[in-house]
Design a protein around this nucleic acid. Structure first.
Ligand SMILES: [Zn+2]
Ligand SMILES: [Zn+2]
Ligand SMILES: [Zn+2]
Ligand SMILES: [Zn+2]
Lengths: 129, 129
DNA sequence: ACGCCCGATGATAATGATTGTCAAAAGCGA
DNA sequence: TCGCTTTTGACAATCATTATCATCGGGCGT
């Protein structure tokens, strides 16, 4: 059976307190700065578990995995700021059905998809002007 | 100015001869098995250049970068077999405009997107039955 | 509350992909 | 061909992530 540890809860809270996607390394540093003695491997394990359980979304950017707390139980995608990491959850049934259809048309089964939109958020856009 | 070396051409040909996405490591091994003395770093550099010049597409899977020769000059996405790496180029103007619109609606600028569909191709689906 | 069992933790080493270094090799224009 | 400059490739360095494994502590039965 799965146990409840303060470490898991600390990761969950730290993730929830972030507006955007963060890396395991960054989350660990952040927790350490706040005085938590949590270990790096534990952060990796917790994030991996959260992602598996559907409580967090993950994506790969520049060779590293980024995580974000997300609305549990719903399938959705993200609009992510390249500069500050701010993420907005977006839904698009049209894209869902398109992905399913295009896979079926080519004889592919067990289709899944990766859909992420990147850009500079309004705030970051203003700063770079 | 950019120089023409047999190494660059070897990578281009090896990439073109592959039906699906391949990793830099795999492409290097493949070339070595064919007797080519090309170096690993060179394969990485060549693939990176090809991707930059738009002659190859790349994607991240399980922490490693995969490359594939693709139709130059066209923006498209891929339907990829999780088992054998077979890739089919797919186009969907609907998805393109959706991505642009959703970014604009949220005040995001310079929008780009990552859209990949994964599954098991007909052949691999049959094998696993 | 106590004790025990087993999953969880964390310091550390190991892994594996990618990149940096730099001397030697090879394009290409003159 | 000569010389300049880019490219190459063996190797080391880097970086994120995972494996190890001795130790810790959650929580169930008592
Ligand atoms: Zn989400
Ligand atoms: Zn979707
Ligand atoms: Zn392509
Ligand atoms: Zn296949």
């Amino acid at each position: 059976m799965k146990r409840n540890t303060w470490q898991r809860e600390a990761v969950r809270e730290a993730l929830g307190g972030s507006e955007g996607f963060v890396s395991a390394q960054a989350l660990h540093s952040s927790l350490r700065e706040q005085g938590s003695p949590i270990g790096l491997a534990t952060v990796y394990r917790a994030l991996s578990d959260l992602a598996t359980e559907g409580e967090a979304d993950s994506l790969q950017q520049e060779g590293e995995a980024l995580y974000r707390a997300c609305t549990p139980g719903t399938h959705h995608h993200h609009l992510i700021c390249r500069n500050c990491g701010l993420a907005v959850e977006i839904e698009a049934d049209a894209v869902e059905s398109w992905a399913k259809d295009v896979a079926a048309e080519h004889g592919f089964t067990e289709a899944s998809h990766v859909v992420d939109v990147f850009g500079y958020c309004a705030e970051c856009s203003a700063k770079r002007a």
